[in-house]
């Protein structure tokens, strides 16, 4: 009897949710029709008539909106994936440093985490772009010649040219997310019993080796869930790129929406693209998580 009641209750909640969703969608459709904004995606095949400063794939203003949005998505993907790698390295280094035996390293890491986490990301982005990077000289005869140049027109390393906009977004995202990852890593390290640290130290292993071979593997299951949520945050925060002129997906959508007047469709596509991207990140992290847990069970 109790079981049936519980099932009925759950069923009711599901029905309620579905009804609510149906009402909202219907409401949207009715209102769209009423204001003459009926959904249409035919504009996607029309030429855009605007140029993009950065494109990994060939692009010209005579290409379609769909292609422009895709090129924007690739630009987003580019900065997000580079950001994920950089933020992870930075975060793991800073997080480990907070449990280091070296007091200077500990203090530096603590300062980094506390300062960066107190300042809004948009302000940091503006700082990196307008103050740090655009404050560089227009051209500088670098002593390293063609190996490395750093000007306010861009950064070139070994022939690879990075725009100032890309560099600023990458710096802001990885430094900001790195600080949060450092906290996640520190939490994970703290979850490993003190005895393990003492054990590898008494074995005469160096700090670095002990951390890598003994502590980090045990901390990993505690780190991964927090890490994936930081990764998702980084991906979402990348939309701030529009503020400093990096042609990411949001920036391209923004222009497309004003030129076509198709705000609802534009935002639907935008939502869908980010949902896809984050599902991808989430999926990869889940796989990783499962692998780590399985390995933990085996040993």
């Amino acid at each position: 009897m109790k079981g049936t009641r519980r099932w009925l209750l759950q069923l009711a909640v599901v029905v309620l949710l579905l009804t609510l969703m149906g009402v909202l969608i219907n409401n949207l459709a009715v209102n769209l029709l009423r204001t003459g904004l009926g959904l249409s995606f035919s504009w996607l095949s029309r030429p855009t008539g605007f140029a993009l400063a950065e494109h990994a794939l060939p692009y010209s203003p005579s290409d379609s909106y769909a292609w422009a949005l895709f090129v924007g998505w690739i630009n987003s993907l580019k900065v997000i994936s580079a950001g994920l790698v950089a933020a992870t390295i930075l975060g793991v280094l800073a997080g480990s440093a907070r449990r280091s035996t070296n007091p200077l390293l500990r203090a530096l890491a603590a300062l980094y985490v506390s300062v960066i986490r107190q300042i809004p990301l948009l302000l940091q982005l503006f700082f990196w772009y307008f103050v740090a990077l655009l404050g560089l000289p227009q051209s500088n005869p670098s002593p390293l010649g063609s190996l490395f140049t750093l000007t306010n027109q861009g950064i070139a390393v070994l022939g690879v040219h990075l725009s100032v906009e890309f560099t600023a977004v990458l710096l802001a995202l990885s430094v900001f997310t790195g600080a949060s990852i450092a906290e996640v890593v520190r939490g994970g390290l703290d979850s490993v019993p003190r005895g393990q640290w003492e054990a590898f130290r008494s074995l005469g292993l160096s700090e670095r080796l002990g951390l890598r071979k003994v502590v980090l593997p045990q901390a990993l299951p505690a780190i991964l869930p927090g890490l994936s949520s930081q990764y998702l945050n980084l991906a979402k925060n990348s939309t701030l790129a529009i503020a400093i002129g990096y042609s990411d997906l949001y920036s391209v959508s923004d222009t497309s929406i004003t030129q076509t007047g198709r705000a609802i469709e534009g935002f639907l596509l935008l939502l869908l693209s980010f949902l896809l991207l984050n599902l991808l990140i989430n999926g990869v992290m889940q796989l990783l998580n499962r692998a780590v847990i399985r390995r933990g069970q085996r040993s």
Binding site: A53, F130, L134, G135, Q138, N152, Q153, V164, E165, I242, A243, I244, G245, S247, S251, D254, T255
Partner: peptide, 17 residues
């Protein structure tokens, strides 16, 4: 170089971008 806001356009221009 496209900024969302005119204020940023001005800042980018004045900073020599």
């Amino acid at each position: 170089i496209k900024y969302q806001d005119l204020n940023q356009v001005v800042a980018g221009y004045l900073q020599g971008r």
